[in-house]
């Protein structure tokens, strides 16, 4: 079996936001209303001259126990055998229950208006036809071809690593097993598949 996961090293993220740009172009997210499948928190932690600037990339955590999938009444949100949580936009009625259920704020609306704007913005390449409550899908179309997600491919600091947790030789499996990389809000019981290596300079 395959169980895809991502490890993000907060020590090497330089906050260039190239991941956001790459994802937006790859997945045609509605950048005109500042909504993204992946985004980077940019925070200053500390006071006066003792301040650390910290970048914290975020995305859908592709939970093993995804609350967004449970509450979805149409079955539009589903989980592939590889662990990737997907959205079937043709089946999604856009009730927003998934957005209400997600602890990671990973879901955002794509409206008919966004589809129209997308056709202007992306031109002939525009592919969205249905409104939906969208989210990251680990670039499943790229992964199916053996490529890495766009955000991982473009990351200049190599902060994002993508791999298979069921492969014992995969570098990310070692990081996760050794607990160097840890999930976000694991107490929620969602069993996320995005892990973070803590920022050693962190003072907040």
């Amino acid at each position: 079996m395959t169980r895809y996961a991502m490890v993000i090293d907060l020590n090497t993220c330089v906050g260039c936001n190239a991941c956001m740009a790459a994802c937006a172009m790859e997945n045609q997210t509605p950048v005109w209303k500042n909504q993204w499948r992946t985004w980077v928190h940019d925070k200053e932690i500390g006071t006066a001259d003792d301040i650390t600037r910290r970048f914290f990339p975020r995305l859908c955590n592709h939970c093993d126990n995804p609350p967004c999938m449970t509450v979805c009444p149409t079955g539009a949100t589903y989980r592939m055998d590889s662990g990737i949580v997907m959205v079937d936009d043709a089946r999604c009625m856009g009730c927003g229950a998934c957005a209400m259920a997600c602890p990671y704020k990973a879901r955002y609306p794509i409206t008919y208006d966004d589809i129209d704007k997308g056709e202007e913005f992306f031109g002939h390449d525009a592919w969205r036809k249905h409104p939906s409550v969208d989210k990251c899908d680990f670039c499943a179309h790229r992964v199916a071809k053996g490529e890495k997600p766009a955000c991982v491919e473009t990351c200049v600091g190599s902060a994002r690593m993508f791999g298979d947790l069921d492969d014992p030789n995969d570098p990310i499996t070692k990081l996760v097993k050794s607990s160097i990389a840890r999930p976000l809000m694991s107490y929620m019981g969602t069993h996320p598949n995005v892990y973070y290596i803590d920022d050693l300079k962190r003072k907040g």
Binding site: T74, A76, C92, M93, G94, C95, H130, P131, S132
Partner: peptide
Amino acid sequence: HLLDHIAVIHV
């Protein structure tokens, strides 16, 4: 307030 009123057929 649904984003896609036609897809309501599924529920």
